[in-house]
């Protein structure tokens, strides 16, 4: 059951990724990377259940925290007007 849901979430992610790679603006791509933050956490906790590996919950905790750092770095430091947005 948990592995099935994890597979569904991964399929979701890959679909979003392929679709976003065609988009013109970097912000769209970054939002997909942030989608990986929340969905990746979901996949990891589901895998922890399915594989009987409780240590993966720790990985999920780390991921939840560090996805925010990348997002903030993007918004505060990297996203300039010259980077081909609308």
């Amino acid at each position: 059951m948990s592995l099935g849901i994890a597979l569904f979430l991964l399929a979701n992610l890959v679909a979003a990724l392929v679709a976003a790679a065609r988009r013109p603006t970097p912000a769209d791509l970054m939002l997909t990377a942030l989608l990986f933050g929340s969905t990746g956490v979901g996949v990891l906790v589901l895998l922890a259940r399915a594989m009987q590996l409780p240590a993966l919950v720790d990985v999920a905790l780390t991921l939840a925290l560090l996805a925010a750092i990348t997002g903030i770095a993007f918004a505060r430091r990297a996203w300039h007007a010259g980077s081909r947005d609308e």
Binding site: G37, L65, G71
Partner: peptide
């Protein structure tokens, strides 16, 4: 995750 996503 909520705090991170609100801040981002």
């Amino acid at each position: 995750a909520l705090a991170a996503s609100a801040a981002v």
